[in-house]
């Protein structure tokens, strides 16, 4: 095993081009577990922790350019206004120690359906900035997840940053686990209201081979909100609309039975979370002071 320690982004890209099998390591949350437990013996480890650029973020007019290694703790603390969904999701990641070190780049690189950031990224709308010595490209988040623990990156590409749309309305994130902290998602749900475009977006984690959006549910809700003029009136969403939205979200799942939960439960729980997060975000949109945003 070789340990590559590029001091700059350019060096990192060159190393990845020279050794396409090199495994990038930043927070170590996934890679070190695999090494400690003898599940993986990469030929090269490519340490990205020396590249300061990856730990920085920049808020633009419409989006935030979030460096791939910005720790979840920083997101929770500093980006609650711009990225409320991702801030909430960040707060559910593992433990304080992990949140101090892990970043969204790791979640994207591993592309596990259980990664906590995915539903929030899907709901907010995002693009992954991937780069290689060949050049830079932006991969829309909807096209990024290609299979179980597979993503759209080419062998010589590294994730430099994620461009996440700044919130133009309320966002929420919920995750079911069988413990009250430090738990991998049984399933998770992200929801973002986008009043500027009068749309809603969703994200579902751990309930299909990849993180997914519940597009049929989104379309249904977009139409329902539009038909009843709710974006303008700010009236409540009727229970029947919420129920149907929840059912469509559940129907979007394609879950499995595993040690963490049953497929049937996952579907059920996604439905419950969809309904609840819809109520929370809509109440917030209506400007209702009773809205509770959680403790992030």
């Amino acid at each position: 095993m070789d340990f590559l320690r590029p001091a700059s982004w350019e060096e990192a890209l060159a190393a990845k081009a020279e050794h396409p099998t090199a495994v990038p390591i930043a927070g170590g949350t996934d890679v070190m577990v695999e090494i400690n437990f003898d599940h993986r013996r990469p030929e090269y480890l490519l340490d990205l922790t020396r590249i300061g650029d990856l730990y920085e973020w920049e808020a633009g007019e419409h989006s935030v350019r979030l460096g791939a290694s910005v720790p979840y703790t920083r997101i929770m603390e500093n980006l609650r206004t711009e990225l409320p969904g991702l801030a909430l999701a960040s707060h559910t990641v593992a433990s304080p120690q992990i949140r101090n070190r892990g970043g969204v780049g790791g979640n994207l690189g591993t592309a596990s359906p259980a990664g906590d950031a995915h539903p929030a990224l899907l709901a907010a709308g995002a693009e992954v900035e991937a780069e290689s010595v060949r050049g830079t490209r932006r991969i829309p988040i909807d096209a990024f997840y290609t299979g179980v623990k597979r993503n759209a990156l080419a062998a010589d590409e590294l994730i430099r940053a994620v461009h996440i749309n700044k919130a133009d309305g309320p966002q929420q994130f919920s995750k079911v686990g069988t413990r009250n902290a430090m738990v991998i998602a049984v399933c998770a749900f992200g929801l973002a209201l986008h009043p500027e475009t009068r749309t809603v977006r969703t994200g579902i984690g751990s309930a299909a081979p990849t993180p997914i959006r519940a597009t049929a549910a989104e379309e249904f809700l977009n139409a329902a909100l539009d038909e009843d003029g709710l974006w303008d009136s700010g009236r409540i969403i009727t229970p029947s609309v919420a129920k149907q939205f929840a059912e469509l979200c559940a129907a979007a799942c394609n879950p499995i039975d595993d040690v963490r939960g049953t497929a049937r439960y996952r579907r059920h729980a996604v439905g419950v979370m969809a309904r609840r997060t819809l109520m929370w975000t809509w109440e917030s949109y209506r400007g209702n002071a009773r809205t509770m945003e959680g403790a992030a």
Partner: peptide, 10 residues
């Protein structure tokens, strides 16, 4: 941080 998840070289 969890030192078990920090590669020595890091």
């Amino acid at each position: 941080v969890c030192s078990c998840l920090v590669a020595a070289g890091q």
